[in-house]
Amino acid sequence: MAEIVIKNVAKSFGSFQALHSIDLTIRDQEFMVLLGASGCGKTTLLRIIAGLEQASQGEVWIGGRRVDTLPPRGRGIAMVFQNYAVFPHLTVFENIAFGLRMKKLPQAEIDRRVNRTAELMQIGQLLKRYSGQLSGGQRQRVAVARALAMEPDVILMDEPLSNLDALLRLEMRAELKGVLAESKTTTIYVTHDQVEAMSLADRISVMNAGRIVQAATPIEVYRNPATRFVGSFIGNPPMNFLPAAKNGSGKWRVAGVSFDGPDASRDILEFAIRPEDLDIGPGGLAATVRLVEPLGAHILLSCKVGGAPFRAVVDSELNVSPGDTLSLVPKPGRARWFDPETGAAI
């Protein structure tokens, strides 16, 4: 069992508070992604779990054992870095075997683990090549294979695909999820790329300013953001937001149109809708088209609604031009509502 429990972890660097009382449980064999913009604290949290950084307060438990008082080598973890960290003067075989030799394992066991993980990462044919002769994608496969060969309880990954080109990232994402599921390893993966997070994670922990603002499945984070920040950060293009004024019990006026909404005590809320959750039909929001961007199967429209910027994703067969006015109707059940002061979902 390699359940990870983070209890009340905080970290400050002088007067700067990088992490604020983080509580998080990662289940055994779960693929957890820490997602957030640069500076949100996700890498700091990862380094505290790894033992590369000392928390200012709190505890880290792995597999029922408190590890924040242990050195990195005593925590049963392996780490994959953004810059690969492979040795260019060693062969692929020796790179993968490096940690195993440090543990003084028998040669037969080293051979077994190296060959097994190399085949998993589809680099078995490269074992005799020097790592300095490999492409970036191949070097990253070596780094992952080296981590898997240690048969750790936990693998920590710090933006491991960010240096790869877009097509290679897509291929590596699919392979990585399958390989880690097969290895039955608990994984914590740090990224700022929301597409990467959505495609890889069993659950996503969205971080902002040193706090976890929502930890849930990718579809839950996408469909039911806990805060305005999550709604604006997740999704490309992000959610649209418009002011909403109470117009009777459970009725709200948004850009001149009345919608059913929450029976809240406040008189002003924020109405939110994702660009792809809009249809064209009567009685909707009046949107003036400013920019038309063809995206293959869809068109992204940048509009103005009630004087505010607004985006809609529509079918590519729609004949629309800048200056046109459309009526955009939210799909049933897709609108979300937020408190404009706290940013919390209603």
Rank of each mutant, 00 (worst) to 15 (best):
E94T: 02
A286G: 10
A287P: 01
I212Q: 09
I123C: 02
W252R: 00
T25N: 13
L170M: 14
G36P: 05
L168F: 11
R211W: 07
N115C: 05
W252M: 03
A226L: 06
A287E: 00
G51I: 03
G132A: 12
D111Q: 15
S199M: 14
G284S: 05
F87T: 03
T25L: 09
G283Q: 07
G283K: 11
E53R: 06
D339M: 07
I22Q: 05
F241T: 01
W252I: 07
Q214S: 01
V195F: 01
A255R: 00
G231C: 08
P225L: 07
R27F: 05
K11L: 14
P106H: 11
G343D: 06
E30F: 09
S15R: 11
R116I: 04
P294N: 05
G284P: 02
S56C: 08
F98Q: 01
L70K: 03
S258A: 15
L200S: 05
N8V: 11
A85N: 08
G124C: 08
R274L: 11
W337K: 02
K42W: 03
M79W: 07
E171I: 12
E270H: 07
G333S: 14
A197E: 00
S258T: 15
T217G: 08
A2L: 02
M32I: 04
S249T: 14
A2I: 04
N319G: 11
T91N: 11
L52M: 14
N115F: 02
C303T: 12
G231F: 09
K104C: 12
D23S: 14
P238A: 15
L295T: 13
L168S: 10
A166V: 14
V314I: 15
A226P: 03
R116C: 05
F310V: 03
G63I: 09
V213W: 04
E220H: 10
E109M: 13
A147C: 12
N247M: 12
F16V: 15
I212S: 03
A108S: 15
N247P: 12
K331R: 15
Q17Y: 08
T185R: 10
L100A: 13
S135P: 09
F13N: 12
R211V: 09
P152V: 07
G210Q: 01
T25F: 05
T117N: 13
K177L: 11
G58T: 05
I62W: 07
A216L: 09
S162P: 01
I188T: 08
L242T: 06
D279P: 04
E196T: 07
I6E: 02
V144R: 07
E159S: 08
L34W: 01
R334K: 14
V314P: 03
A264H: 13
A197Y: 00
L52Y: 04
I346K: 03
G281M: 10
V9E: 01
F16N: 09
V230G: 00
A85S: 13
E94P: 06
M172K: 00
V60W: 03
L45P: 10
T217C: 00
V142C: 01
Q107A: 15
